[in-house]
Amino acid sequence: MKGAFAAVSDRLSLLAYLLLAAVSIWWAGSYLLIKIAVLDVPPATLATARLLIAAVVLLVWLRLSDAGPLPLNLGSWARYARIALFGHAAPLYLIAWASMTVPVSEMAILVATTPLFAVLFAHLARREWPSRATLFGLSAGFIGLAAFLSLSTVSTSHASRSAAPLLALLAAAACYALSARTVARLQDGNALVTGTAVMICAIPMLLPLSLAFERPWMITPTVRTVAALLLLGVMSTAVVYVVYYRLIRLSGPAFASMHHYLVPPLSIVLSAAFLGEGLNLFQILLMGPIIASIVIAHGLISQKL
């Protein structure tokens, strides 16, 4: 009997790592897609378009599946609205806005501070200081990320560039940490129902901003931009967020947030390959400690964060 339980646990652990890998790869690629789309589509409209495309995809997916209908009680929709604000509307807009001036590699690195915010919010909620082991697991990744940023070939532009986009990316990281805690507390429905309801809630949070200030009806996107928007909406928003919600429920928000340690090195590789951004030997060497922090944190961070 003990062996059977161990086998089930191993399968769950393997599934968690596979889902983590899928989320990391697609979200690393999403930074490149945002960079492409923002050339023709302003940030609020870009984020709104992602949500609209994702909502359509998820509604069709929900209709064709046996996941069940969307909930009718106001309590569930209030929780979905909180997830929509902190997990979609706010961070998607902030990241799109910052992408107009911040390179892909820096974007990924700054948003990767989400686990640190997760620990901070857990401490504030429980009014207790995280254990030394927990802090060590998070610090290992953060030190690697800090070194990543300091050794980046684009970091020298900080002195002449406004700090506002960088602060916006840190704010997006904090939003993601808050969203993950709310998702972890959801007891009703499944990942597909949650994803669909959240997308529906997030659209009206950004649509007025787009209509009032960006006049989307005047935009004439190129074929490349349209393709980037479709990939952002279908894969990087609809499919991947459903996978992410499944990952949170399977392994907890702390482990799920560790994808932020994988996204930076993946983003730097992709941005070097497709956008011509710098990739040096120091950045490659620092990928090892960042990826290793995933394993450290999985064993050390409580899933109740």
Rank of each mutant, 00 (worst) to 15 (best):
V242N: 04
M199E: 09
F142R: 04
A159Q: 12
T156Y: 15
A172R: 06
A228T: 04
M205R: 06
L138I: 15
Y176L: 05
T194P: 00
P165E: 11
L151C: 11
A168S: 11
R249T: 07
R249K: 14
Y176M: 04
V240R: 00
L232H: 10
S152H: 02
V193C: 04
P216N: 10
I219T: 07
R132M: 08
V193F: 01
T225D: 04
M199W: 03
A122H: 14
W217Y: 02
S251H: 01
A164L: 15
V223G: 10
A228I: 09
S139Q: 06
L247W: 12
L211R: 08
T237A: 05
S210P: 08
P208F: 15
A140V: 14
A184Q: 11
C175W: 13
S155N: 15
T237Y: 00
V198M: 12
M205A: 08
S157T: 11
A140Q: 08
T153W: 10
P221F: 12
T182D: 14
M199A: 03
A180Y: 00
A140F: 09
A146K: 14
Y245P: 03
L206C: 02
T222Y: 09
A191G: 01
T225G: 02
S150L: 15
L145H: 12
A177H: 11
P221K: 10
A173I: 11
P216W: 12
P208G: 09
R246S: 06
G141H: 12
V234L: 03
R132P: 05
R126Y: 14
A184E: 13
L149V: 02
Y245T: 03
T237W: 01
R185I: 04
G189R: 02
M205Y: 06
A159D: 12
R127N: 08
A147W: 14
V183H: 00
P204D: 05
R215T: 05
S150Y: 15
Q187Y: 14
S251N: 03
A133P: 04
Y244S: 07
L149K: 01
S157D: 12
V183M: 02
A163M: 05
F148H: 12
S155W: 15
A184G: 03
A173W: 13
S251M: 01
T196H: 02
L231M: 12
L230F: 05
T194D: 07
Y176W: 13
R215Y: 09
A164W: 14
Y241V: 01
A168C: 11
D188H: 09
V242P: 00
S155F: 15
L250C: 07
E128W: 15
